[in-house]
Amino acid sequence: MLTGKTAIVTGAGRGIGRDIALMMASRGANVVVNDLGGTGAGEGADQTPAQQVVDEIEAAGGKAVANFGNVAKPEDAKAMYEQAMDTFDGIDIVVNNAGILRDMIFHKMTEEAWDSVIAVHLKGCFNMAQAVAAQFKVQASGNFINFTSTSGLIGNFGQANYSAAKMGIVGLSKSLALDMARFNVRSNCIAPFAWSRLIGTIPANTEAEKARVERIKDMTPAKIAPLCVALADPTCETTGQIFCIRNNEIFLMSQPRPIRSVHRSEGWTPETVRDHALPAMSADFYPLERSGDVFSWDPV
């Protein structure tokens, strides 16, 4: 499916990114395996995880090169693009998977915890897209696969920084699809359910939360890779969509559209909004749900 194509996969030293890199290589892609090698909170650096994935790919007969850059730094994103061009003479696919978590209830959230998560997730996606956009335009082809989360799409406790970043990625991904469609460049989002180091850091204080974590442990990162590779296939025309994967289930997620309207020919006052508009629309208000409330059934 991907013979002759080159992919950059960020956060590919472990978990979801690792399985994507391995599967893309198994389908013929050259892979730049990026991973800073930090902790789940983004601290420290270790070149071992990225290099181990490269070694696995090469042992299986594939082609890969390790990269240890930080997606939050524009110069590191540019270096990844240059490494792909220098090593494999091209770039066709960017998988924006790198991420960190610094969860805390909002009234305790620090500016540093906010900024660090936004920097890796949202700014990191921007940096990677910006680094390759001109090349994608020149060659009139390219593919962005961006990772969002149901924590942003639906909601979750203690993840305001992460949820905001992941919803920002949805907007960025759609803008990339719109702005670059004329150059035959596609962009899609994936919200994964899979056990990872990051998921393991989420507090589970109630029995229901502990049970949900146990269910997630059965959802291996390898389940995410097939959709990612399929979206990267140059014969695929899908763009501007949001998908969710949970074990063997693939969901197409909704995107905001008007669902109800109210109108007064004389216009609105605060009082008529309160007494007419809001009650008229309230039957279609969304409840204050979390991801686990919406995806409440056991995965299949």
Rank of each mutant, 00 (worst) to 15 (best):
A129D: 09
R182F: 05
Q159W: 10
A140F: 01
F183H: 15
A194G: 08
F157A: 15
R186F: 06
R182D: 13
A134K: 14
A177R: 00
L153S: 09
S163V: 06
L153E: 09
G171L: 04
C189H: 03
T148R: 02
G124P: 05
I169E: 00
S187I: 04
S163A: 15
G155K: 01
I190G: 00
T150K: 07
Q159R: 14
R186E: 07
G158V: 04
N161Y: 11
V170I: 14
T148S: 15
F144K: 00
D179T: 10
V170P: 01
F147M: 15
T148Y: 05
F147K: 00
R182A: 15
L172G: 03
G168M: 13
H121G: 08
Q135W: 08
A181S: 12
C125H: 11
F183N: 13
I154A: 02
I169S: 00
S163R: 03
C189D: 12
V170Q: 01
G158Q: 12
N146H: 06
S151P: 02
S196R: 03
A177S: 14
L153V: 10
N156W: 08
G142Y: 00
V132G: 01
S149I: 09
A131L: 05
A129Y: 05
L122F: 13
C125G: 09
N146R: 04
V138T: 14
S196Q: 07
L153G: 11
A191Q: 07
T148W: 04
V120L: 04
C189S: 13
A164Y: 07
N184F: 04
W195Y: 13
C189I: 06
N127G: 08
K174E: 14
A181H: 09
Q130Y: 04
P192Q: 11
A131D: 07
K166E: 07
K137L: 09
L172I: 11
V120A: 04
K123N: 15
Y162A: 05
A160D: 07
S187M: 07
A160F: 08
V185H: 00
N188W: 10
N146P: 05
P192S: 13
P192T: 12
H121L: 09
N161T: 12
G152P: 08
L176D: 01
C125W: 02
R186T: 06
P192L: 08
V185K: 00
F136N: 00
N146F: 03
F144D: 03
A164H: 05
A165P: 08
S187F: 08
N188G: 12
S163Y: 10
A165Y: 02
N161P: 13
K166F: 02
L153W: 10
S175K: 08
N156R: 07
S163D: 14
N146D: 12
P192D: 12
